[in-house]
Simulated assay, not measured.
Amino acid sequence: MISLPSRLFHLGVLICFLAVFTGGCSNDSPENSNAPRVLRSIICTTGMVGDLVQAVVGPEVDVQVLMGPGVDPHLFTPSPRDISQLSVADAVIFNGLHLEAGLSQTLENLEEDSRRLVYSLATPLEQSPAGLIRVGGEQFDPHFWNDLELWQQAATGFANKLAEVFPDQAERFRSNAQAYNQKLTELLTRSQEQISAIPPERRILISAHDAFEYFGRSLGLEVAAVQGISTNTEASVKKVEQLVSRVVQNKIPAIFAETSVSDKAIQAIIAGAKQQGFDVRLGGTLYSDALGPAGSDADTFPSMYEANVKTIVEALK
């Protein structure tokens, strides 16, 4: 026969076991409520964001990207599985400036849980927006990763935010951000040298949608596109005709498609120029709003940027 104290002991164990699933017998005592937060998993919206975040947090943290190669963040809407994945991450990091318009409500809902860090890389730039390209009212072009100096500011701002939330790891985050930014400085210098090899009259970049204004400003390229900064808008016949005239008049040797946007309008420009007796070729496909697949020449942000520079130089030089 089991004694009463023994029965009471086993009953207590059973109650505590069941309470794990109902919120009782937890570690949420006053002593543990102030325990340091732990950063184990991060979900990032785009590959560019994921690259920066992984560089700053280091390999100790699991970083996953929601939108893979070829996915257009302007048109992305989350599935129930995506929302479930986001809801269990310790942190959700996004680009901001309405790049991920279809995720706006989901991100707002996630921010209501104070235990999770939800952060936009554009935050420090919005606080001092002099370097951002304004596109009307209080709206800014969201493709600021194409200005490496702005991307460096984003990395520093993110490291500072992490240092605030996880002070015990502040030195590591800031050191990692500095190392990442040094690589971007070297990348910018190389890229400017390579673009300078293009004859000045040929430094005109025409692409599918307006994702390269920051890129052009940073590297000294004139930029034009069929669609605006968001791919939500359709390419107009008038815009295609305008770009055909520009290609023919300036004898632009090549124009560019993008990996995450249909090339239908770009092909229309090529056909329109040919009708007017000028052969402009497809100079290649640029990575605009998404990285390349794993194992490609653009599966990290620096390699993506470098691949774009190489494609443009080879086509226009």
Results as ranks from 00 to 15, higher is better:
Ala170Thr: 08
Arg172Val: 15
Arg172Tyr: 13
Ser175Tyr: 11
Ser175Ala: 13
Ala177Glu: 08
Ala177Cys: 08
Tyr180Glu: 01
Asn181Cys: 13
Asn181Leu: 05
Asn181Lys: 05
Gln182Tyr: 10
Lys183Met: 10
Thr185Ile: 13
Thr185Asp: 12
Glu186Gly: 07
Leu187Val: 01
Leu188Gly: 05
Leu188Pro: 07
Ser191Ile: 01
Ser191Met: 00
Gln192Thr: 05
Glu193Thr: 07
Glu193Asp: 08
Gln194Arg: 12
Ile195Arg: 01
Ile198Asn: 09
Ile198Asp: 06
Ile198Tyr: 08
Ile198Leu: 08
Pro199Gly: 03
Pro199Asn: 05
Pro200Glu: 11
Pro200Tyr: 09
Arg203Ala: 03
Leu205Ser: 03
Ile206Arg: 05
Ile206Leu: 09
Ser207Val: 14
Ala208Glu: 08
Ala208Leu: 05
Ala208Gln: 07
Ala208Thr: 13
Ala211Cys: 02
Ala211Trp: 05
Glu213His: 15
Glu213Cys: 12
Glu213Asn: 15
Tyr214Lys: 00
Tyr214Ile: 00
Phe215Ile: 00
Gly216Cys: 00
Gly216Leu: 01
Gly216Ile: 01
Ser218Met: 14
Ser218Lys: 07
Leu219Arg: 01
Leu219Phe: 08
Leu219Ala: 02
Gly220Tyr: 07
Leu221Ile: 09
Ala224Tyr: 15
Ala224Leu: 13
Ala225Asp: 09
Val226Ala: 09
Gln227Thr: 14
Gly228Ser: 12
Ile229Val: 15
Asn232Trp: 10
Glu234Val: 00
Glu234Trp: 03
Ser236Ala: 09
Val237Leu: 15
Val237Phe: 15
Lys239Gln: 13
Val240Arg: 05
Gln242Phe: 11
Val244Gly: 02
Val244Cys: 00
Val244Thr: 05
Ser245Glu: 15
Ser245Phe: 11
Ser245Val: 14
Arg246Asp: 15
Arg246Val: 12
Arg246Leu: 15
Val248Asn: 06
Val248Pro: 07
Val248Gln: 05
Val248Phe: 06
Asn250Gly: 10
Lys251Ser: 12
Ile255Asn: 03
Ile255Ser: 04
Phe256Asp: 00
Thr259Gly: 12
Val261His: 01
Val261Lys: 02
Ser262Ala: 06
Ser262Pro: 07
Asp263Ile: 04
Lys264Ile: 11
Ala265Glu: 06
Gln267Thr: 09
Ala268Tyr: 10
Ala268Gly: 06
Ile270His: 06
Ala271Trp: 07
Ala271Ile: 06
Gly272Asp: 00
Ala273Trp: 02
Lys274Trp: 10
Gln275Met: 09
Gln275Lys: 12
Gly277Phe: 08
Gly277Arg: 11
Val280Lys: 04
Arg281Ile: 13
Arg281Val: 14
Gly283Arg: 06
Thr285Met: 05
Leu286Ala: 00
Leu286Tyr: 02
Tyr287Thr: 03
Tyr287Glu: 00
Tyr287Arg: 03
Ser288Met: 04
Asp289Arg: 07
Ala290Tyr: 11
Leu291Met: 11
Leu291Thr: 12
Gly292Cys: 08
Pro293Cys: 06
Pro293Lys: 04
Ala294Cys: 11
Ala294Lys: 14
Ser296Gln: 01
Ser296Tyr: 04
Asp297Thr: 14
